[in-house]
Nucleic acid binder design. Structure first.
Length: 156
DNA sequence: GCCAACGTTGGC
DNA sequence: GCCAACGTTGGC
């Protein structure tokens, strides 16, 4: 099983939005970056995903989701009225794909980017790399375990 | 194939 | 709101 991190701006879609959905499941549509798409193609059922809130205050890992459907064509790419429409993607030859994820756990205490940066052992995390913009990225198992432990330990 | 221009992401 | 970093586009 592999571990991942996916970013979302909470103003468009937050972990609370995910929690409110039927079956607490959503399709991760709208990704228009080849590297991010390729990572989604690698995802297997049961893979675990950190849910990250970007462009907010504070930015933070706010919970865990899991992959419940493997990569399949993203229909928003076919819709001219959709914000993420891409005429290069045809139903006969889809360019963009998405996976479905289901909420596993919302952290009682989100781990902020600032806290992650200060944490020994996470220096190599893609999320913390300067200029990193990848919205779907792999997380190393040791990083995953450390972050989960921190989230459980954290008390205010 | 190079690279300047442009649009976007996302932390601050 | 600013702007650095990044990915993509398109002229040459």
């Amino acid at each position: 099983m592999r571990y991942w991190l996916m970013k979302s701006e909470p103003e468009s879609f937050s972990i609370d939005d995910l929690a409110r959905l039927p079956k607490q499941t959503t399709s991760w549509d709208g990704v228009r970056n080849y590297q991010a798409r390729n990572f989604m193609r690698e995802m297997e059922l049961g893979d675990q995903v950190f849910f990250y809130h970007s462009s907010t205050d504070p930015t933070a890992i706010v919970g865990i989701a899991e992959v419940v459907k493997k990569a399949y064509p993203d229909p928003t790419a076919f819709d001219p009225k959709d914000k993420h429409y891409d005429p290069k993607s045809k139903p006969s030859n889809p360019l963009w794909e998405m996976v479905d994820i289901r909420l596993v756990e919302k952290f009682a205490h989100p781990l902020t980017l600032e806290e992650l940066r200060a944490q020994p052992g996470l220096e190599k995390m893609e999320l913390l790399r300067k200029g990193s913009r990848l919205s779907v990225q792999p997380v190393r198992p040791e990083e995953w375990k450390l972050i989960v432990k921190l989230a459980q330990r954290k008390k205010k």
